[in-house]
Amino acid sequence: MLKRAHYTIALPLMAALLAPVALAASNSDCETALNKRDLVGAKGICTQALASQKAAASGNTPAQLETLARAHDNLGSLSMLNQQYREAETHYRASLAVRTRAYGKNHHNLSHSLVPLAESLVRLNQPGDAEKLLIQTLQLRQQALGKRSEAVARIHGTLATFYIRTNQIAKAQRQLADQISILEQLYPTGATATAKAYNSLAVVRKKEGQLPQAEAYFRRSIDIYERKNAANTLEISAPLLNLATQLTETNKLNEVESLLLRVKRIRQQFEGEESVGVADIHNRLGVLFNLLGMKEEAEKQLRTGLAIREKRLGTNHMLVAESCNNLGMLLMQANRLNEALAVLRHATVVIHSQTGPQSAQTIAAWEQLEKLYGRMIQQNNSAG
């Protein structure tokens, strides 16, 4: 079977940023480096910014302490980008301590520290502690801003995303229902936040096997984006791609090509002609065209996707293995066994190196190779 991609959900922003302070090395300078993904340069700039904010916070005013907390947030973000999750936790806890000094322990502004701290704990495989922090954030916002505020709706969405990631589907569904209820009351004609929530709810329905409801919610999400003049944004690509995936899996193929081509155009516009995201669409189109019996076009798409992935990711990457596996299966179907052998061998080597010799992926890859070797032996015997 050709592999298909996972569903996509949008993750929440980790922290809200306040106005910069004009210092030699400012939070704004740090954030500029982070936005540019200049992680090497950002380390020095953000560390200097933190030192500057510590010196400037001697008066312990709420504004000074908030700026200091923001400096810790920025270093936490840098650590997250570098996958240094324990260091990120340290900075976010420092940020929380500073904001507690500034506002007290029951102020909703603590959420700017609590949400990213929870994310760092998820990455450290401490989901129970992360959940407590997110529930604390929800309670603080409800007490300060009311249960039907937009800020409360956002944290319902954050909790839903957390529950989806930790496979707590019933809890995720309740949070999404609360989020959508609030947003539809606040924005009766729809909002992009509502569209994101419907996409996430569709993912939950899909996980529960409720396919008609999932398809309906994916379409509702797309419709809201289009009505809010967001028809050509990266955000709409999530429900478009999820709908295309579900339709492919349920063999409802008529719309799939147009959906995938639409996502491809969006990704080309925002990410570039040869981005990893565009390569993913080439791979998906290859899978689709193979299902439709369009073998020549399927091979073209799969080879294009493979070439981009190798260029962007290197040859020893699991996405490269995925492309090689899909191309190898197509070549086997066409009885081009020697060509199939080359790409399936490479897929097996990559999977073995990335997941280990005993992983389910490695075992499956070797089983596929054994089938290919069996067909090659049979073919040679028949020719002899």
Rank of each mutant, 00 (worst) to 15 (best):
L2I: 15
T8S: 14
I9T: 00
L13C: 13
M14E: 13
A16C: 01
S26D: 05
C30F: 03
K36P: 03
L39I: 04
G41W: 12
K43L: 10
K43I: 07
T47Y: 07
Q48C: 03
L50C: 02
S52V: 11
P62D: 03
D73G: 14
L75N: 13
S77I: 14
S79W: 06
Q84Y: 05
R86E: 15
V98N: 03
R99M: 06
H107I: 09
H112C: 14
L114P: 01
L117H: 07
L121W: 00
L124R: 02
L133A: 02
R141L: 00
Q143W: 05
R148Y: 12
E150Q: 15
V152M: 04
G157K: 10
T158G: 04
I169V: 11
L211C: 00
F218G: 04
R219D: 01
N229I: 00
A238T: 07
L253Q: 00
V263S: 09
V263H: 00
V276F: 03
V278Q: 10
A279S: 11
I281S: 04
N283P: 11
N283W: 00
N283E: 00
G286R: 05
V287C: 06
E297N: 14
K300L: 10
K300T: 04
R303H: 08
L306H: 02
A307T: 12
R309T: 12
T315Q: 13
H317T: 05
S323W: 01
G328I: 02
R336N: 13
L337F: 03
N338L: 08
E339N: 02
V349L: 13
V349H: 14
T355F: 09
P357W: 01
A360R: 13
A365Q: 05
W366G: 05
Q368F: 11
N380S: 05
